[in-house]
Amino acid sequence: MFPIRDHNPSGRTPFVVYALMVLNIVIFLSYQPIMGDPRLLSAFFNDWALIPKDVMQGNELHGVVTSMFLHGGWLHLAGNMLFLWIFGDNLEDEMGHVGFLGFYLLSGVGAAVAQIAANPASPIPMVGASGAIAGVMGGYLLLFPKARVDILLIIIIFFRIFTVPAWVMLGLWFGLQLLNGITSDATGGGVAHWAHAGGFVVGAILCLPLWLRRGASGFWQRTEGHPPHPEAKYRLSRSTVPTVRRKR
């Protein structure tokens, strides 16, 4: 299950969201030549990724920030950019360009701190914008809990698009991060689930002042839990595949 779009495009151009997407893609492309060489790639990530053990020893502190702009593969990058594109524009609309950029970076730092706290002795490099984007999702949930989000549900060979309120999709996602974080502590794993959960909580907390300034629950009542502008109307196009009727 993953989102493919929401029904509330922003009221103005989300320049920071676009800039972050371009920056992440350009940086990923910059080290594509060494992706096939495990030795060079390992050395690169050791220099620029977040390594909890090193940070706890006071070394390589820059990794707390630089790791947000690195990715381990095309699917990792594409998934993160999809989530940023869907949920980031409405927050940038509410916070302003500079405010959203600061929020994004602080969410990423908060996610890194959460992962370090969960496993401070880990020597494994951590990369990805997931923690910062989880903060965006946490803020989105606080401000727009009833915004409509289209999700693609895949069960083996079953594909179906559903429209659900944001609180359903984001609540399930957050719950899965907590569950996977607990189970990965016991079994090991290659995904920084605590960074995701931590970033989500940090993002919601960072959005609290904005939510309170907008009127707290009064903001929800005025907007019905949606971004404060008209919804987009989507209509699935009809299939061009001809219908084959059964012969009797």
Rank of each mutant, 00 (worst) to 15 (best):
S30G: 12
P3Q: 08
G218D: 05
L29W: 06
N8H: 15
G128H: 10
G88S: 04
N80L: 07
A204E: 01
I161A: 06
S239W: 02
A232G: 10
Y31I: 06
G99Q: 10
G138P: 08
S30M: 12
V22M: 13
P230W: 04
G225A: 05
E231P: 10
M1S: 11
N59G: 01
V16C: 09
I27Q: 02
L143F: 03
V202T: 11
E60Y: 12
G88N: 04
L82C: 07
G218K: 03
G96S: 04
A192M: 05
W173E: 11
H229Y: 15
Q57H: 15
G108D: 09
V202H: 00
W194H: 11
T66R: 07
A195E: 04
F103S: 02
A78T: 08
T243E: 14
G190Q: 09
A232L: 11
H196Y: 12
A112E: 01
P38Y: 08
V16F: 09
L70M: 14
L70K: 10
L77K: 05
G72C: 06
E60W: 06
F100K: 05
T240K: 10
A49K: 12
G215Q: 09
I133T: 04
R160M: 12
I151W: 02
E231C: 05
G73S: 15
L101A: 11
